[in-house]
């Protein structure tokens, strides 16, 4: 069996395991919903990483998607409408910002994204009368495709949507990365000039990936808003962006399963770190990240893939 087919199998197995865990432990269902949502956002980060570009500001789109849900929910109280609305909002904003930032590379790309997310963060606090500042906005109970749901069913539905979106975006990213557009991304990382010689615009290649990543982050934000039912500006703070890059490396940028492995691990480590030492969770997460980078550079997916390949060879 090739690694690509094993990946598919693992994805389905993983999805099954998540459903089982959520069934047996009610509180895990929420944590896993958040993990899946963050995994989707990290998938977008991974697309940009393929081009060697790190966005230190993608929390901007997560927060944008979340606030889109919070603002639209009173007039459009249905998850089936809010999710596309959030995706559309972030895609439009992502295109506008992408046109600007896709001219820049490396540190400038990263820092511009960081700066714009910090401007957005400041705006959420400044326009206090609309955004309620740090108090944040409560998301009212939502219907799903016209159905009114009780608490438990609602939680299951959001979990289900998150899982479906994760599988859908994952499959899409796989196809995308294998396509010429995806291959061109890798070329930006190695030698961008060569793309120009071939008549391919590196800027449009990067822009396309950027808009995709913004949209994914927006969907993630919408899911987080629907699950937590309360959004605050902290979603767009630079440490939240750092967290997404953190998860990308933790999971491994080598395959589309990486972001989800990373996100689930990250959330679980954080929960257990918080339960063991409530005031030292940051140090524990930092140490985990350090160990991964120093001793397992491919992340969790890298470790897994290596083991699978060895077994395949044997």
């Amino acid at each position: 069996m090739t690694l690509r087919r094993i990946e598919l199998l693992l994805a389905l197995l993983g999805a099954g395991a998540l459903v089982l865990a959520a069934m047996t432990t009610p509180w895990l269902k929420f944590v896993l919903t958040i993990a899946l949502a963050k995994g989707i956002a990290v998938l977008g980060i991974m697309l940009l990483l393929r081009a060697g570009q790190v966005s230190f500001g993608h929390a901007l789109y997560v927060a944008l998607g979340a606030y889109a849900v919070a603002f639209l929910a009173p007039v459009l109280p249905d998850a089936a409408l809010l999710l596309p609305a959030a995706a559309l909002t972030t895609a439009v904003v992502g295109t506008l910002i992408g046109l600007f930032v896709s001219r820049y590379r490396e540190i400038f790309f990263g820092m511009l994204n960081l700066a714009l997310s910090m401007v957005f963060y400041s705006m959420l606090e400044k326009f206090y009368h609309y955004t309620k500042g740090t108090d944040g906005i409560r998301v009212p109970p939502l219907t799903v495709a016209g159905l009114e749901l009780d608490r438990v069913t609602h939680e299951w539905t959001i979990f289900g949507i998150a899982l479906a979106l994760a599988l859908g975006f994952g499959a899409f990213a796989r196809v995308y990365l294998a396509s010429p557009m995806g291959q061109a991304l890798t070329a930006i990382k190695t030698r961008e000039t060569r793309l120009d010689f071939m008549g391919v615009s590196a800027r449009s290649v990067l822009l396309a990936a950027y808009v995709l990543s913004a949209t994914m982050a927006g969907c993630a934000g919408a899911l987080i808003a629907m699950a937590t039912r309360h959004v605050t500006p902290l979603l767009s703070y630079w440490t939240a962006s750092g967290e997404l890059v953190f998860i990308a490396i933790l999971g491994g940028a080598g395959g589309v399963l990486g972001p989800f492995l990373g996100a689930v691990t990250y959330e679980l480590v954080r929960v257990y770190a918080a339960a063991t030492v409530a005031d030292m969770w940051q140090m524990i997460l930092g140490a985990v990240l350090l160990l991964v980078i120093l001793f397992a550079r491919g992340g969790i997916w890298g470790l897994l893939a290596l083991r699978l390949q060895r077994r395949g060879a044997a």
Binding site: F246, M283, G286, A287, L290
Partner: peptide
Amino acid sequence: LLVTFALFMI
């Protein structure tokens, strides 16, 4: 960058 981010957290 992430190594220094991890160090920052610690």
